[in-house]
Design a protein around this nucleic acid. Structure first.
Lengths: 190, 190
DNA sequence: AAAAAAATGTGATGTATATCACTTTTTTAA
DNA sequence: TTAAAAAAGTGATATACATCACATTTTTTT
C-alpha cells in the first residue's frame, strides 16, 4: 500500500516541496480505502466526514431533485478531489450523493486533519490554496458555459475536452452533467 | 486613506490573526484605487494585473458573446474579491470584462504580491485558502441552481438571498446573471 | 448461455423561454 | 428642466429542449 502513498506525495509535490519530516507528519492523516461500483462515499442526510483524493476509478457527485432526476456536479477520476464541500466545510449532513461509477480507490482526509496539516505545514496551506483556486476557476468556466452556450455546444466542448470520459460513462450521465435530457443529447451531433 | 487599510486588515482578521509586523509587510502590496460608474477594471484582450478587494460600490464581471449579449459571472460589492481569475492565474489577456455598476473603491493586489505574501506569511496562505474554499462552494451552489431550477425559481431564490441587490441594479443585469432574457424575467412573479 | 437490467434511439407532442417589435416609464446628463 | 438615453413592460411568434412512449441494442448478472 506504500506505493499508493507515494502517488499522494507526488500529487503534493507537483505544486509544493515537502521535507521528509513534513511528509511523515502528513501521511498518517490520510486513510486509504476502496469501494466497488455503485457504492456510496456520501449519502444525503449523513455526516460528511471526509474529502477524498481519487487514486483510480471514477466517481460522481450529484444532487437528486424532487422528481428523482440526477444532476451531476462533478465527475472525479484519478488525481481529483471530491466531497460534498458545502456540507464538509459547514460540518452538516450531506445534501448531495457521491458514489462510484467504477470500482475506485482513494484517500480520505477529515476536516480536522486538513486544518491541522494546513496550520502546521505552510506548504500544505499553499497546496490547498492553489488547488482550490484552480477549482474555483474551473467552476467559473462551467458557469459561463451554462450561461452562454446551447446544450449541444456544451456537449461538443466536453467531447473536445474529455473525449475519454464521454466514452467511459453512460450518456445519460453526460446529459445529467451538461444539464440536458438524455433524449435530447441522443439526438445531437450525428 | 489609512482607515481604508484598517478595513482590509479587519477583513483578514475575520479569518486569521496577524502580528503588526506581518501586517506591515502585507499592507504595502495593496494599492488603493477608485473608479466611477461605467469605468473598467478589466477589459478583454488586456493583461490582468490584479485581483481586487472591494471597499465600497458595486462591480460586475461578465462575458460578452458573439451576439453582443452580456452574461454576468459575478456581482461584487463591499468585502468581495473579484478579477478575471482565469486570466489572472495564467497571466494571459482577459477574456471577460469587469466594470463598475456604481462608483467604487477597492484595493488592487498583483499575482506576484499575492504569492509573495502567501509564501512569507502562512496565515495569509490560510486566509486565501479558506476564502477560495468558500468561493468554490458558492460556485457549486450556483451550478446546482442552474442545473436543477427553472429561471423563475432562480429569480425567487435570488430575491430571497439578496433582495437589496435586486433593488439596486437594473433587472436586465439580474437577468444576465440568472441566465434568462430580460423580457422573460419581467414576466415573473407578479 | 440465458435472463434481466440498463442504455440507447426515435417519433410525437408539450412547454419554458427566446426573440422581435413596440410602448411606456424612469433615470441620466446637457 | 428639458432632451436623450436607459430601463421596463407586454403582445405575438419562434424555438430549443423536455417529456412521454415504446422499440432496439448493449451490458450485467445468474
Amino acid at each position: 500500500m506504500q506505493d499508493k502513498y507515494q502517488l499522494l506525495k507526488q500529487h503534493f509535490e507537483e505544486i509544493v516541496t515537502l521535507t521528509d519530516e513534513e511528509w511523515n507528519f502528513i501521511a498518517p492523516h490520510f486513510e486509504h480505502k476502496k469501494l466497488k461500483k455503485h457504492q456510496f462515499l456520501i449519502q444525503t442526510g449523513q455526516p460528511v466526514d471526509c474529502e477524498f483524493w481519487i487514486i483510480n476509478g471514477l466517481i460522481k457527485s450529484y444532487a437528486v431533485d424532487e422528481k428523482g432526476s440526477e444532476h451531476i456536479l462533478q465527475f472525479a477520476m484519478e488525481d481529483y478531489w471530491v466531497s460534498d464541500y458545502y456540507a464538509f466545510q459547514h460540518q452538516i449532513p450531506a445534501t448531495i450523493f457521491v458514489d462510484c461509477i467504477e470500482d475506485s480507490e482513494f484517500f480520505c482526509l477529515s476536516l480536522e486533519s486538513r486544518e491541522t496539516i494546513c496550520q502546521k505545514i505552510p506548504a500544505m496551506a499553499n497546496f490547498f490554496r492553489i488547488k482550490s483556486n484552480y477549482g474555483f476557476i474551473g467552476l467559473q468556466q462551467r458557469i459561463l458555459s451554462l450561461l452562454t452556450q446551447t446544450a449541444e455546444e456544451r456537449y461538443d466542448a466536453l467531447l473536445f475536452k474529455l473525449p475519454k470520459l464521454v466514452q467511459r460513462v453512460p450518456k445519460k450521465l453526460i446529459a445529467a452533467y451538461l444539464g440536458v435530457s438524455r433524449e435530447t443529447l441522443s439526438r445531437f451531433k450525428g
